[in-house]
């Protein structure tokens, strides 16, 4: 007798524990390893005098490692949460955060800003704004075109993102190949290497503003995965809830891309793993995806900064880890998604 994917109440506590362990572990590895005791000393006021913490160590902890670890967790959490939400409202298990072109749009914005040699903060801002604008365009086309609404939004997303990809290619073509082109290329591959405390501050607001409604609406998303007619006759204002979910998922995706570049696969692989663990009920699926995404990206980022002498871009690593993992997951058992 086949049962629906079970409740498995242990998953969430286990993931939370894993997250704490991964955070502590991430401080401990790197060119300057920082143990738990030293970490405590570095974040506590100097006057408490915990451990023998040098100024250099304190600077590394506060200005390099804390922001980077925090951002890895936030980006992983947001991409997975957005991916799971998109999958629900589009009733498409293959949907991911870059599904509607938010990433392509943000990439074009960032490439353009880099081409014009804007400072880092402006690049972030332009990437964020163009990611949001892209979804605005996609939704406007989707509303205007005749036919099945979900399908036409998806088609509009495919078209618009391919247009933006062409624009990005063109910007790369005209960029100065000695200094600007590598910078653009590197940005597109995704990285958290340039994270600073103000980067985290910049994205924290849109991320929280986007994630909170997604979490609150998670029960309603269950109904949206059925047909519009069913959801509506069970009392859900289908178009409004779907619109809020799309806007919020896009907001957090654009925020992620603006600070970390293009990091693929997280938003597809992690929600699927979560589906395997706790089933498709968004009451459990969404939180598990979010925490799982934070753990996943933090660990991948640790590999990124420690495996080789130079950093490996995150987008490459998530693809190398994500694609085979996904393949294994879908071929392992003939189980319905």
């Amino acid at each position: 007798m086949k049962r629906a994917p079970g409740r498995r109440g242990w998953v969430m506590p286990a993931l939370a524990t894993l997250l704490v362990a991964a955070i502590l572990g991430s401080f401990a590895i790197g060119r300057f390893p920082i143990g738990p005791y030293e970490l405590l000393g570095a974040v506590a006021p100097r006057s408490w005098g915990i451990g023998e913490v040098t100024d250099q160590m304190r600077a590394i902890v506060l200005n390099v490692r804390v922001p980077r670890i925090l951002l890895a967790c936030l980006v992983g959490c947001c991409l997975s949460g957005a991916g799971a939400s998109y999958q629900g409202v589009f009733r498409n298990p293959m949907a991911s955060p870059d599904f509607l072109g938010a990433s392509s749009g943000a990439a074009t914005g960032a490439a353009l800003a880099l081409l014009l040699q804007f400072p880092a903060q402006v690049v972030m801002l332009v990437a964020f704004a163009s990611g949001l604008a892209t979804i605005g365009i996609v939704m406007a086309i989707g509303q205007a075109a005749p036919g099945h609404r979900l399908l036409r939004i998806i088609l509009a997303g495919i078209m618009v993102s391919s247009l933006f990809n062409a624009a990005t290619s063109f910007i790369k073509l005209v960029a100065d190949p000695t200094d600007i082109l590598p910078e653009i290329t590197y940005w597109l591959m995704g990285s958290l290497a340039k994270t600073r405390l103000d980067t985290v501050a910049f994205v924290l607001v849109p991320m929280v503003v986007g994630l909170v409604p997604l979490v609150l609406l998670r029960w309603r998303v269950n109904l949206l995965t059925l047909s519009d007619a069913e959801a509506r006759t069970m009392g859900v204002d289908v178009s409004r809830v779907r619109w809020v979910v799309i806007v919020c998922a896009t907001l957090v995706t654009a925020a992620c891309v603006s600070v970390s570049g293009l990091i693929g696969w997280v938003g597809l692989v992690v929600p699927h793993l979560a589906r395997r663990l706790v089933g498709n009920d968004y009451r459990r699926l969404l939180p598990v995806s979010m925490v799982g995404g934070a753990v996943f990206l933090l660990l991948v980022d640790d590999v990124s900064r420690n495996l080789l002498a130079t950093e490996i871009p995150l987008g490459i690593l998530t693809a190398v880890i994500g694609a085979p993992f996904f393949l294994w997951m879908i071929t392992r058992r003939n189980e319905a998604i």
Partner: peptide
């Protein structure tokens, strides 16, 4: 449906109109 829900969850969805929008 696209995603597999347990029969219990499927039936529970019927109670949605009793539940506040954000809960």
């Amino acid at each position: 449906p696209t995603f597999n829900y347990s029969v219990a969850d499927m039936v529970l969805m019927g109670t949605t109109a009793r539940v506040g929008g954000f809960s």
